[in-house]
Design a protein around this nucleic acid. Structure first.
Lengths: 233, 233
DNA sequence: TTGGACTATAAGTATATACATAAAAACCTG
DNA sequence: CAGGTTTTTATGTATATACTTATAGTCCAA
């Protein structure tokens, strides 16, 4: 009965993975419970738990109390991607980073931004358009709205020295964020700012960040042609 | 010294998060070691370990043996995103899903694909162009190369019934994948297939999947205009 | 001053035990 | 038999203890 020596949670995990891949345990199948596996593997139940929990977190197993553990039916695998800080991203490629503030103003936001940031009608926000350059060439530009009520001290900060993003991550804690990734077609404005042709496809990230129920900032990053975002499973 | 009662790893995690957000522990700071925190929180070291490990996995803490635990300097937060199975994605929006195979052939891949899939020069792969439709309208098209050596049984499968992606996830286990996200400009071919205008910006996902060192498949998904991919932290 | 050997330390892990909790399954009861 | 209650059970978690491992720091010698 004893299937060998499994004395680390990684080895247990590897064996479970092997059985899933070898289709000994097929998608949808219930697998033996923790206690049984612990006996079979000759280790403590906590060790099995650690291995199975990790696999469940990565989406490969479904676990429910009392019901048991089954191999996930639709292997919706999860990829983790690092949210880039633009300066690091550029500098890690060995390029020099520079950024310029194109415009800075207090203004009433358009309704789309207002809805996303959950502010009252007529409230003025800080509106900031910045361009980030790699080796002097346009890399990405950011169209950002900041809620000054959620960000004490922003009025006094000089955002031409440190970019708004860096100032915010360094000074304002946040709980979470929404991201969306999409593509757009370069119009006249984008073509001018990014020094590309009108009509080119551009990669776009929209991000909102919040803390304590207040939306701190909402930004649209429009990247110059050729940008790629990578990740692995 | 005892800071209160923390008798679950979640409560410990919440307290640590609070201190980070309140800047009691600033980015770059070392925090007390597990043993000290366990005493302060009045719980076992394993409980502190569980809480800190989870925070480290989400990128908020940096931990190294012997060195200790510090608040991450650049809060490169990690977002997890679900890799969509197109049919589910479409059906979960209440739309009807359909897909058609535009072309299917055995062919020698172009050098870019050959390099990415690590196959010898001159080897023929399966090349498959498919269109996925939501409510009858073009949603995304896939230009896919499959290495038949890595996929026993693919020759016999009828990929017009089940899409290649679904056939693969159902039949071939995989260890990992590379993803990249980018934007492109619709050319004549894309405009025709996706029924959009030439020159529109399109969202693109390139994905390779491998198992046991063999690249199974490499696919480029080109989405119709308007597609967005969402995620949260 | 450098470079290798040693040591101390903090995280990492394994284990037995105990109890908590969610929820499926069995058991009522009208 | 429907609907609610109890029991059972698999996962989830906490804890004390012990040992492992990576590595920052220290020490020492060439």
């Amino acid at each position: 009965m004893s299937g060998g020596e499994f004395n680390s949670w990684q080895s247990v995990q590897a064996e479970v993975l092997r059985r899933i891949n070898a289709r000994e345990w097929k998608p949808g199948d219930f697998i033996p419970n923790e206690a049984e596996l612990a006996i079979e593997f000759g280790c403590a139940r906590a060790t099995v738990n650690r291995a199975l929990r990790a696999l469940a977190e990565s989406g490969l197993l479904d676990r429910r109390r009392k019901a048991g553990t089954r191999v996930a039916l639709n292997p919706v695998r999860k990829a983790t991607l690092d949210i880039p800080v633009i300066r690091y991203e550029i500098e890690s490629k060995g390029q020099t980073y520079r950024h310029t503030v194109l415009t800075q103003e207090r203004a009433v936001p358009p309704s789309g931004i207002r809805a996303r940031m959950q502010v009252e009608q007529g409230v003025k926000l800080i509106h900031l358009v910045t361009l980030h350059l790699a080796d002097g060439k346009p890399y990405v530009f950011g169209d950002r709205w900041i809620n000054p009520q959620a960000v004490p001290g922003i009025e006094a900060a000089d955002l031409t020295v440190k970019s708004a993003n860096e100032w915010l991550v360094a000074n304002i804690p946040f709980e979470g964020g929404d991201f969306s990734f999409s593509a757009m077609t370069a119009g006249k404005r984008e073509a001018e700012i990014l020094a590309c042709k009108e009509g080119e496809g551009l990669f776009v990230i929209d991000r909102s960040t919040w803390n304590k129920g207040l939306v701190i900032t909402s930004v649209r990053l429009t990247f110059a042609p050729g940008y790629q975002m990578h990740t692995k499973i």
